[in-house]
C-alpha cells in the first residue's frame, strides 16, 4: 500500500478526561490492521487533570515515524473541543489542514474564575475556517447529554469523513479489540452516530488528497 502523502499526520486535540487516548488508540489500531506503520505520540501527566491533551497519530506505508509531528505538518485535526482545535494550529496547522471539530466547549478554570473569556463557538469555528482548508462541525454531544462516548462519536466522524485510508471494517474491528465487552454496544453505536453525522456513507475510503510536499 502507498499513501498519497507519507507520512499522513493526524492530531486529536482535546481536554483531559475527554477520552483522547482511547480515540487515538482506536484510530491507530485500525491503521495497523490496514497494514501501515502507525506511531501515536501522547501527552500524559497533566492530561487527567483538565489540561490540554493532544495525540499525534502518524501513518506511513514506508517506516516507523517519530512520535511527534513536525511544525505545520498536521494533515487532519480532530478537535474534541473547539478552542483546543484552534490552539494547535499555530504549531501544527497549515492552509491544507482539514479539521473535524465538536462544538461543545469545556470551560478552562480561568474562564470560570472570570480572568479570561471563552469566545463564541461560532466565531471560533469561523476563525478556524480562515486558517485551514476545511472545517466540519460534528455535534457529538446534544444539549443536556453527558457526552458519554463522545470521543468515539468523533472517531466515527473521522471514519465517515473518508479522510483516512482505513476501511469501516478495520475501524470497527479495532473498536471490538480495544473496548471492553460491556461497553462495546455503546461504543459501536457512538461510532455509527459519528459516521452518520459526518455525512459519510463512505464505507470505502476516499483517497487522501492533500497538497504534495515539496
Amino acid at each position: 500500500m502507498t499513501l498519497e502523502k507519507d507520512p499522513l499526520n493526524l492530531i486529536i486535540a482535546g481536554v483531559g478526561g475527554q477520552g483522547n487516548i482511547l480515540a487515538s488508540q482506536i484510530v491507530a489500531t485500525a491503521g495497523i490492521k490496514e497494514g501501515l506503520y502507525v506511531t501515536v505520540g501522547e501527552t500524559y501527566g497533566a492530561s487527567q487533570r483538565g489540561g490540554p491533551v493532544m495525540s499525534h497519530v502518524r501513518f506511513s506505508a514506508k517506516a516507523q515515524c517519530g512520535p511527534l509531528i513536525p511544525e505545520g505538518e498536521a494533515d487532519i485535526i480532530v478537535g474534541l473541543e473547539p478552542i483546543e482545535a484552534l490552539r494547535i494550529i499555530a504549531d501544527y496547522g497549515s492552509p491544507a489542514t482539514r479539521v473535524i471539530v465538536s462544538p461543545r466547549p469545556i470551560y478552562p478554570i480561568w474562564v470560570l474564575s472570570g480572568q479570561a473569556k471563552y469566545p463564541p463557538v461560532e466565531e471560533v469555528v469561523q476563525k478556524l475556517g480562515e486558517l485551514v482548508a476545511e472545517v466540519r462541525v460534528v455535534k457529538a454531544i446534544e444539549e443536556g447529554e453527558t457526552g458519554l462516548a463522545a470521543n468515539v462519536v468523533m472517531v466515527g466522524a473521522l471514519a465517515g469523513s473518508g479522510m483516512l485510508p482505513i476501511t469501516m471494517k478495520n475501524f470497527e474491528g479495532s473498536i471490538k479489540e480495544i473496548v471492553s465487552p460491556k461497553d462495546l454496544d455503546l461504543n459501536l453505536r457512538a461510532f455509527k452516530k459519528g459516521v452518520e453525522l459526518a455525512g459519510g456513507k463512505a464505507a470505502v475510503p476516499v483517497p487522501v488528497k492533500t497538497r504534495k510536499r515539496k
Binding site: V15, G16, G17, A46, Q48, R49, G50, G51, P52, E71, G72, I83, E84, L86, R87, I88, I89, A90, G93, S94, P95, P108, I109, W110, V111, A116, K117, Y118, P119, V124, K127, E130, L131, K214
Partner: peptide
Amino acid sequence: LKARDEKYIEQAKELALTYIPPRMPTFC
C-alpha cells in the same frame, strides 16, 4: 529552510495566545 508562511503563523499565534483562554491543569 523552506519556512512556513510567517503571516499565517502570526495570525494563528495571535488566536492561540490572546483570542482563546489558556487552559491550566486543575484538580479533577
